[in-house]
């Protein structure tokens, strides 16, 4: 018989378990429950996938910008898509969806990461900060102000990622010189070419004693 995967971290039943239970309850298919696992697997794929799909979700508890969310997500959904499509926090941008541009940069438990390469389900219990959570009330974060002052953007699409990365660049201690900033901001591509202005903005915030995060 099919081996049930171990799942000691979460109390919810595994995907296959839940889905199979659902399928077992579908009367016409009861007999299949007795079939060898390989056959059952093959048979499963011909079943009503639309209904079965309902069970292919996991509970996800995350805190985004200080607000707790309980969501139900497919394991294949990335943090970026959950932020943008489920929570409608579209400040985090999709520039490549392959971890090659930095536009989706967010902070997870205070560290800058790429949300397009992060499976949402793996963020359970974590604290996420996006560009929408950077300012305090009406008060812009010093990095946001510096980007405006130094004109650190044109089209604005890479900007949220640049700013999230810039804040982390300083808190990590990698904003000592302009060249250090350039190296440690190289994961954020800007096609309009605002790099020199971005470096000026970060350098100014760093010199003023860093930034609040």
């Amino acid at each position: 018989m099919c081996q049930q995967p171990t799942n000691d971290a979460e109390k919810q039943p595994s995907l296959h378990h839940a889905r199979r239970n659902f399928l077992k309850q579908t009367s016409a298919l009861t007999a299949l429950a007795l079939a060898p696992s390989v056959v059952m697997k093959a048979a499963e794929k011909k079943l009503d996938e639309k209904a079965a799909g309902f069970f292919e979700q996991k509970t996800l508890n995350i805190e985004v910008n200080g607000k707790a969310h309980q969501l139900s997500v497919e394991p294949r959904a990335t943090l970026l898509d959950v932020l943008r499509e489920n929570l409608h926090l579209t400040g985090s941008k999709k520039g490549c969806d392959l971890g090659q541009c930095g536009a989706c940069t967010v902070h997870v438990d205070g560290k800058r990461v790429l949300s397009c390469l992060s499976l949402a389900v793996m963020q359970n219990g974590k604290k996420i900060t996006t560009i929408e959570g950077l300012q305090q009330g009406d008060q812009l974060h010093p990095m946001q102000e510096a980007f405006i002052k130094h004109d650190g953007f044109q089209c604005g699409y890479c900007t949220p990622g640049q700013i999230m990365s810039a804040v982390a660049c300083i808190s990590e201690g990698h904003a000592g010189t302009d060249n250090e900033i350039r190296e440690y901001m190289s994961g954020n591509i800007c096609r309009c070419g605002a790099y020199p202005n971005i470096v000026d903005a970060i350098s100014e915030v760093a010199k003023k004693g860093g930034s609040r995060d």
Partner: peptide
């Protein structure tokens, strides 16, 4: 003169074509 859409762009409020709910 700072960009007139600067604040929208640095706060993630600027909405691009795939971002309408």
């Amino acid at each position: 003169l700072d960009r007139v859409d600067g604040k929208a762009k640095v706060t993630g409020q600027a909405k691009y074509s795939a971002e309408y709910e």
